[in-house]
């Protein structure tokens, strides 16, 4: 993995968030005019329970360097248990990704409530810093671009 020119490297990060807590929390960050890094693009889901693990992989395949997954704190889920289901899914998913050698440090899980505008800003900044440190996820991008590069001249 190349860590060269990290100063010029702007991580591309996709945030998968639930509508009721984290999306609203990020709204509050805005309303509070708390500034944070521009690297994150937010995708709104009704609930963390809705977030398919394949969408996370799709983000990496499409060139994301990092991912944020965030929803309601335990017991605060708008749908009572979507976040609990999601939490289990992520536990299992993380363990599988780790077995495969996929860099689980690049997926940041968090609970951010609708009241935690500042936490959202911190989460984004912290994740951007982590990913900047790790560098672009070239390993994965290279594999994603296999047909374009590697196999073309076979």
């Amino acid at each position: 993995m190349s860590n060269d020119n990290n100063s010029a490297f702007e991580p591309r990060i996709i945030a998968f968030v639930c509508n009721w807590c984290t999306y609203a929390g990020a709204d509050l960050t805005g309303t509070s005019r708390i500034k944070y890094a521009t690297n994150v693009r937010i995708v709104r889901f009704p609930c963390t329970g809705r977030i398919d693990f394949l969408l996370l992989l799709k983000a990496f395949a499409s060139g994301a360097d990092g991912i944020i997954v965030s929803g309601c704190h335990p017991n605060d889920c708008h749908y009572t248990s979507g976040n609990f289901h999601a939490r289990r899914r992520w536990m299992v998913f993380r363990s599988l990704l780790d077995t495969l050698g996929i860099d689980t440090r690049r997926i940041r899980y968090s609970w951010v409530s609708a009241a935690e505008g500042a936490k959202w800003a911190d989460l984004v900044n912290d994740t951007v810093a982590t990913i900047r440190e790790l560098g672009p996820y070239n390993e994965y991008k290279k594999v994603a671009d296999y047909l374009g590069k590697e196999a073309g001249d076979e």
Binding site: P46, C47, R50, I51, D52, F53, Y79, H85, A86, R89
Partner: peptide, 10 residues
């Protein structure tokens, strides 16, 4: 259905 989508991901 309240539309949480947990079943969809599952």
């Amino acid at each position: 259905c309240q539309g949480c989508g947990t079943c969809v991901a599952f």
